[in-house]
């Protein structure tokens, strides 16, 4: 129990350093915020244009796409804010940076995740919330306690699931020390999660559901909210999350075991 309290304390200390870094470079932070908001908006507009020209994608109208897109954005921006350093596994391996973490009395993954926070991404999180509420209102999704709890469940489980997929892909860098970033592949797959999955061929739906389940960080939860699926998403989501997180943890641990430092 005191272990857990210690880790919570430690996490708070890492977050504090994150805030401190943020205010060290105020101009950087502002440019960061503007650029990620622009990035998300352009992506959003792209999907909306396609939806409009096709008069809705496969039964998904403008507002339904707002809900889908914003849900995918919620998990992504939360991950960027708190655990974005999964993306630096590759550079840590190449530069032998895990050496330092390995000589300290805390789990290496925790130290890695604590090493960088991008709280600027909370701006896109807020933006996503606004878009979600906008779509929600227009569609008229009932504002029940159940639905609100489901959104909360989704934000937590979806972020963990999303991060776990990134962790799994980035951990491949342990074996491919000198290759380019294989993990970028995960981002390519994630592009699919911005569109209603049902428009894609069966193969892609299969991959996005059973292999790299990005379907659960947007499409399935959004479908559930709008009554477009028979699946029991509130039950499935944590199960998928647990499976993927365990698998990612296993890949991470195996990679860490084989970690060989550098020559210095």
């Amino acid at each position: 129990m005191s272990r857990i309290r210690h880790y919570i304390d430690l996490e708070k200390a890492y977050l504090y350093l994150g805030v401190y870094t943020l205010k060290e470079y105020p101009l950087d932070s502002i440019i960061w915020i503007i650029s990620i908001i622009l990035r998300e908006i352009t992506g959003f507009i792209g999907v909306l244009l396609i939806a409009r020209s096709l008069d809705g994608i496969n039964g998904w109208d403008f507002y339904a796409i707002c809900v889908l897109f914003s849900m995918a954005m919620l998990t992504e921006s939360l991950g960027q804010s708190f655990v974005d350093s999964v993306w630096s596994i590759g550079s840590h391996v190449r530069k032998g940076k895990f050496d330092t973490y390995l000589t300290r009395p805390a789990p290496v993954l925790m130290q890695l995740l604590g090493s960088r926070c991008n709280f600027q991404a909370m701006s896109t999180f807020t933006m996503a919330l606004v878009i979600l509420i906008y779509g929600w209102e227009h569609i008229g999704i009932p504002l029940t306690i159940g639905n609100i709890l489901f959104v909360l469940e989704f934000i937590i489980c979806g972020t963990i699931l999303n991060t776990s997929i990134y962790l799994a892909f980035n951990s491949l860098n342990f074996w491919l020390v000198n290759s380019g970033n294989v993990a970028e592949l995960a981002l390519t797959f994630r592009q699919f999660s911005k569109y209603p999955l049902s428009i894609f061929p069966k193969l892609i739906i299969g991959v996005m559901t059973y292999m790299i389940p990005f379907g659960f960080v947007g499409f399935y939860p959004a479908s559930y909210l709008m009554g477009k699926t028979d699946w029991n998403v509130p039950v499935l989501l944590p199960i998928v999350m647990l499976i993927v997180a365990s698998a990612a943890g296993l890949i991470w641990r195996t990679g860490m075991k084989g970690y060989n430092s550098t020559g210095t």
Binding site: H6, D9, L10, A13, Y14, Y16, L17, Y20, T21, E24, Y25, R104, P105, A106
Partner: peptide, 18 residues
């Protein structure tokens, strides 16, 4: 930590090593 004053790094180590 590169971006923060030395004392902040020290305080983090204080937490880390209890």
């Amino acid at each position: 930590y590169w971006d923060v004053p030395i004392i902040e790094s020290f305080r983090l180590f204080q937490k880390l090593y209890e």
